[in-house]
Amino acid sequence: MTMRRNLASLIFTVGLGLMLVSLMQGSHTAFPVEVGQNINAAGFADHGAANLVTSVVLGYRGLDTLGELTILFVAATAAGMVLGHCPGGSTPPVRGGFILATAAELLFPFLILLGAYIIIHGHLSPGGGFQGGAVIAAAYYVPLLAGSGRLFSEDTGSLIESLAGVGFIAIGLLALWGGGEFLAPLYSHNGAPGALLSAGTLPLLYLAVGLKVGSELASLLARLGGIGMEVDDDA
């Protein structure tokens, strides 16, 4: 055991030394950052999205985003598997007071609206599927915390999750069907740049991302909090 501690410290020291050396040396102009610069130049024309980060996330590097949705899905699935089968293990939800419950009731629609806004404006302004999805997940969690219900069943959750995932892939495959490449931008020149209805399929993709991220994070939160979904699992 002492050997293991020493080795662990060794990794730590070696890693730290390397990092410090390399980061201190790294001046940020060693090589012109070409690709990003070119995306800045061409991204607007390619996708018609005012937010270039969105073009990168959903357009140029859309495959990464699919992979990332997959990782969140794996994590939620595995967490569900670990926590799903523990009858009697979950603590009953804490019942909040009347005031907390009312506040949560009032907060719920506001947060949902905010999340939806962040998602559908993802191609125009900062924000998008991930951020909006996380806000929606929080919106579901707040009333649960206050003990005022509004659980959504595991069935609905997993249905939304899988529909959103398949939807993302389907939009990507639509381009493949039309003789293009997977996840190629479609209809990107319909609508004026900067308008809500612009950037072709990007807002749809972000909607799928938002729904998937939201439902997965909500399920993670509910399971970790020991409320909501486990109820129908235990039954």
Binding site: T54, I118, Q131, A138, L220
Partner: peptide, 19 residues
């Protein structure tokens, strides 16, 4: 990086902390 800032605020300090 406002996109990342929003994500970090919501996910990093919000959701992770709550979990």
């Amino acid at each position: 990086a406002p996109d990342v800032a929003l994500a970090e605020a919501v996910v990093g300090s919000g959701l992770s902390g709550v979990m």
